[in-house]
Design a protein around this nucleic acid. Structure first.
Lengths: 240, 240
DNA sequence: AGCGCTTTGTGCACCCGTTCACAAGCGGCG
DNA sequence: CGCCGCTTGTGAACGGGTGCACAAAGCGCT
């Protein structure tokens, strides 16, 4: 242990990564419950709705404080607020999408962005034929203006939806502008300074992981000695 | 742990999840190297290109066997083959995309699918106005025909790109058809039997995770223009 | 008011994954 | 032909995450 370690577990920075990755799921479920007029919910019910174990859920929530009433459950609206605050969603984030191909189009129109305090501030592409066109009510700007756009709008998160070949350069320019969070859809490994967070979404990788399990299941149909097909194969939920 | 029998079994089922999630990354990097005519590569170089530690990479590869020559490195083409085989990519998989909205469009045109033995066999939507249109050289079929399409094409992987409200029903029908692998882009928790693998890709969740780290960075350091490394700011870059 | 039922919050043990460090193995060079 | 340097493969320590089981703590009913 390192007691001198600055990680004060009671604080926001002390929330484990695995928990942070699940909080948005809880948030969505709770939002639906709130819309349905449900006032409170137990950890068991919420865990079932979120697809996790109830113990895990309670431990997750305990990391942000002791909100919740024993014998009753959690106040839905209050919990929504607390999770939102813990995730930093009470702030406003400006997002720039670079690369307005098929995927960029889809992202620009994705409703899930706006619903949680994220604002798509700009669409950027290198193709001059696209520049000036309007997508999702927004005008596409040219890649040359990236630095200016980031500065003007105060972009804090960059979404890279370019071809793989352009991704690293775009990323470098974003980082040079001061952007410290990048969501990368290009099938490439981005190298960034460790002050920058990069999350990756790769459709091809997801499919290959599924293929592995598919093949494993198919192999189990015949003969496999030892632990043939463990049925602990729970539906996994992974991202990044 | 399997020194004696290790050579024969290959242990496909014994590959840890975390390793499986990284193998596609190695595969992509190796593919690029092979195209570049590189004959062999060391674990250090490959690890750097894949954005992981070299020890981790070696341990990952060791799970599929002892391919690799000490003092030299790995034969690129041979390793490509071995990883492909371990992932089950030597087989052919038929993919059906359900929901041809913005995202479904992007997925249908995504080149990364075809490059690894995945074939988009069908595009399916519930909107009769879309049915019959051609996207990415393929005709959109109606949701009513889902069962028939799955059976005819031997679809083994279903990709759900529908609105959240329709996702569970579509998923249930896929499962009923015998599909055991689902890639879900809808922002919902799908409940499936344990025999079915579900992987989830949620753009909104990724953004919220980034927001958390963004907020943490902002709160922690105040203003530190210099790249002075603070206490324990471990912004570990990518995670599968 | 007190009692018992319900549900939270958490200490603990286990397991998976990561990292370190090093012996084993292979090729090349003298 | 034997030695040396390089790289793999892996045993072992470490840390984080998960699940169990239970004590603490409200609420409603009597």
């Amino acid at each position: 242990m390192s007691p001198s370690d600055g990680a004060r577990s009671g604080r926001r920075g002390g929330i484990p990564e695995a928990t942070v990755a699940r909080l948005p799921v809880y948030l969505r479920v709770l939002g639906a419950l709130a819309d349905g007029g449900v006032p409170t919910i137990s950890s068991d019910a919420l865990a079932a709705a979120a697809g996790v174990g109830s113990a895990k859920l309670r431990k997750d929530l305990s990391h942000l404080g002791s909100y919740g009433t024993r014998g009753v459950g959690y106040d839905v609206e209050y919990l929504v607020y607390q999770i939102s605050r813990a995730l930093g969603l009470t702030q406003h984030y400006c997002v720039a999408i670079i690369g307005v191909g098929n995927l960029g189009h889809a992202l620009a129109n994705y409703a899930g962005f706006a619903t949680r305090g994220f604002e798509v501030a700009a669409l950027i592409d290198a193709d001059t034929r696209l520049v000036g066109q309007r997508v999702a009510g927004m005008e596409i700007r040219h890649l040359d203006d990236l630095e200016e756009i980031v500065a003007t709008h105060g972009v804090s998160i960059g979404v890279i939806a370019t071809p793989a070949a352009a991704a690293q350069e775009v990323c470098d320019r974003l980082v040079a502008c001061g952007v410290t969070s990048v969501l990368n859809f290009a099938p490439t490994v981005l190298s960034v300074p460790d002050t920058v967070d990069v999350r990756k979404v790769d459709l091809s990788i997801e499919l290959q992981i599924l293929a592995f399990h598919e093949q494993r299941k198919a192999a189990g149909g015949g003969r496999t000695p030892g632990a043939a097909v463990p049925d602990d194969v729970r539906s996994a939920a992974v991202s990044a």
